[in-house]
């Protein structure tokens, strides 16, 4: 036990020191700062997003793509389906800046109009996947027990089937009458497992948090908790994955077209155009290049967007 009665010689550098008060003004204990007025995590995320070049670039590109999808006639007056062999592989000329492909169709017009099919497949497949995977994953994660065991096995079954392969087999069934909806349906039917797994994980990790318990203690039912607390908190990783997958589904659609199981030739599609231009790679690379570039840029925009959103929603950057 220290005995305070013995006086101590203070050593150099250890004399009693008290900082002048004006240097570090004392603030109230745990004072509430009034600097900002209410910003949710989403607002915060958005604020840090708009400072990211990756987000700005991909955002602008996606915006452009959406405009092209909605109003293709703003960008070209040519008809993408008007093809005559007279124009086969013709050079660029006024009104047809990129020239013509082997079938004699305007390459530029086809690139512009091809956006519709790709983006539609990407967007609706993503929607389908989020709905199927989201519900199955949320139910499995939230209820646990045998429901979880059963749904997890079903996820395993669908996950074990190679994605493109399963799509090929199914599309083979409707080979001669494939529509956009078939492709969307098939991709969604075999693609939902990833979202389901992510949703399940996110739900499991939030369902035990204190704020959910507090809500239970207030008297909220489990279902209310799921909808009001658990799902909103689990949604961030789902959004990120969905954005990236949108790009991946566009690639998948192109791959199916390339394998001859894609959209019918009446629909303008980048995948089919790339496939048919393949043989021209030596002589007319532009017929190949432009649809391929359009596809790659579109896909890239979505995965860059997903990447930027992931950074902004990073849980490590969340707490302050």
């Amino acid at each position: 036990m220290p005995d305070t009665s013995i006086p101590r010689a203070t050593r150099a550098g250890q004399q009693r020191y008290v900082a002048p008060l004006d240097e570090t003004p004392l603030q109230g204990v745990d004072a509430v700062s009034n600097e900002s007025d209410g910003s949710s995590l989403w607002k915060d995320a958005f604020r840090s997003l708009i400072r990211q070049p990756l987000f700005i670039i991909s955002g602008l590109l996606i915006l452009l793509i959406l405009v092209v999808v909605a109003f293709p006639w703003l960008f070209t007056s040519a008809d993408p389906t008007y093809c005559t062999l007279d124009n086969s592989l013709a050079e660029p000329r006024a009104g047809h800046p990129l020239g013509f492909n082997q079938q004699g169709c305007d390459i530029y017009a086809r690139v512009i109009y091809g956006a519709q099919a790709s983006v539609m497949v990407g967007a609706f497949t993503t929607l389908g996947v989020v709905i199927i995977g989201g519900i199955i994953g949320a139910v499995a994660g939230f209820y646990g027990g045998w429901i979880d065991a059963l749904l997890s096995r079903i996820m395993d079954i669908f996950f074990a089937l190679p994605f493109v392969l399963a799509a090929i087999v199914v599309l083979q069934l409707v080979r001669d009458s494939i529509t956009v909806w078939h492709i969307i349906g098939v991709l969604a039917a075999f693609g939902w497992t990833q979202i389901a797994r992510i949703t399940r994980g996110a739900v499991i990790s939030t369902k035990n948090s204190d704020f959910v318990t507090a809500s239970t203690a207030v008297g909220a039912s489990p279902l209310k908790n799921l909808v009001r607390h658990v799902l909103p908190n689990a949604i961030a990783p789902v959004i990120v994955t969905a954005t990236v997958s949108l790009g991946i589904y566009i690639v998948a659609e192109a791959t199916l077209s390339y394998l001859g199981l894609g959209l019918p030739s009446t629909i303008v599609s980048w995948g089919a155009d790339i496939a048919s231009a393949q043989t021209l790679i030596r002589t007319n690379p532009e017929a190949l290049f432009f649809p391929a570039a359009a596809l790659a840029v579109t896909v890239l925009s979505f995965i860059m967007m997903g990447d930027a959103v992931r950074d902004a929603l990073d849980p490590k950057a969340r707490t302050r």
Partner: peptide, 22 residues
């Protein structure tokens, strides 16, 4: 790496085949 993910495998495939193979 993002660019590689964005380009469909079949495009990589036949462009690679053409450039390096042919």
């Amino acid at each position: 790496s993002l660019v590689v993910i964005a380009i469909p495998t079949f495009v990589l495939g036949f462009v690679g085949q053409f450039v390096f193979g042919i």
